[in-house]
Nucleic acid binder design. Structure first.
Lengths: 184, 184
DNA sequence: TAATGATGAGACATCCACGTCTCATTCGAC
DNA sequence: GTCGAATGAGACGTGGATGTCTCATCATTA
């Protein structure tokens, strides 16, 4: 049973990621609480979805902080970021997939702030000569997030072993993003 | 004004991709027809969404056919496939994002058939020694589709120039998927 | 043990999108 | 020009999810 808000939000992601239009009954059941308690924790459906988005963005921001992407070697920072964020890949997948989140101003602001950090990381990496300059930093940012979301789905659906997640993401993305020949 | 079914379906994708819960009024208006006519063309919302999925899958199948992915050099085939499918990237993006399509049996069957062709392409490429074997063919298939969807979004939202679409997809993905050092 | 707070279960009204219908108008064919 | 089919506009009933409420039960604490 999940009584605290974050536990409920994680349960909500598990349901909403698969069926974005799932009834609140179903979400409440998945969280092990009643619909009444769900309403006591979150005023309504919109609030719940918004809070899920904010949770995902807090996790993303925490991963960006923990991996120190804002300065230093871009290649190493990106590898640290991959290690840090892959456990929350499914949250990020929901973040990109749920277009309803774009209506939430608070979510949007925090989202753009984190994407700006990611964009800056790739731009710095290009200036450092480690990332390819034929591909725009904006595209690298977006593609990274797309693959991260893909990792989340593949793991959740059992098509990819959790053990292989970070490796698969890092090797595929860095293979296409790094300027230097692949180090072997 | 779009009177034929496919034109309506394309207009529907334009709306549904951004707001999957958009009202039928909005879809009809986007297609330039009335809600009554929309109902005459498609029995209901589920049917409409299912037909959108089938349209996307027909386009995908056509691209796979046209690029001849089922035999021959895998690398060249994949490049031909990218050229052929990028114009319909947004349709593919909707295909992966709309989880409701998973409930449609006809969509699911055709979807798995096309994904099997893609999977076979990567497997053959690995056997030919052109694709990396450290990454599973399943993951390569999925990642390719994730990036294809990302291309669709980036172009639609104006973050990527349509001219750069095929290049950005091909360079990033092939850079990570090809076994041989990048040819330059 | 008694009391307070939180939770679960259920009932209830409300709202809104959907599906269906009718009718006037328009377009196209002959 | 006339007829026929197709379309647009609008009204209407319905179903279902949501939000709110009440009440009984349970856990925690004094």
């Amino acid at each position: 049973m999940a009584t605290d808000r974050d536990s409920v939000l994680e349960a909500a992601v598990g349901v909403l990621s698969r069926r974005p239009t799932a009834h609140l009954d179903e979400i409440a059941r998945a969280a092990g609480i009643s619909r009444a308690t769900l309403h006591r924790l979150f005023p309504g459906r919109d609030a719940l979805i918004g809070e899920v988005g904010m949770l995902a963005l807090r996790r993303l921001a925490a991963a960006l902080d923990a991996s120190g992407v804002d300065e230093g070697d871009a290649h190493a920072a990106l590898r640290r970021l991959i290690d840090a964020i892959v456990p929350d890949a499914m949250l990020c997948a929901y973040l990109t997939g749920e277009s309803q989140l774009y209506d939430d101003e608070a979510v949007n602001d925090l989202w753009e702030a984190q994407m700006a950090r990611l964009h800056a990381l790739f731009l710095r990496g290009q200036q450092q000569g480690v990332f390819r300059i034929e591909l725009s930093a904006a595209w690298l940012s977006e593609a990274f997030f797309d693959l991260l979301a893909g990792i989340g789905w593949a793991v959740q659906d059992g098509r990819l072993a959790p053990r292989d997640a970070t490796f698969s993401l890092a090797e595929l993305f860095l293979g296409g993003a790094l300027r230097a020949p692949r180090p072997h």
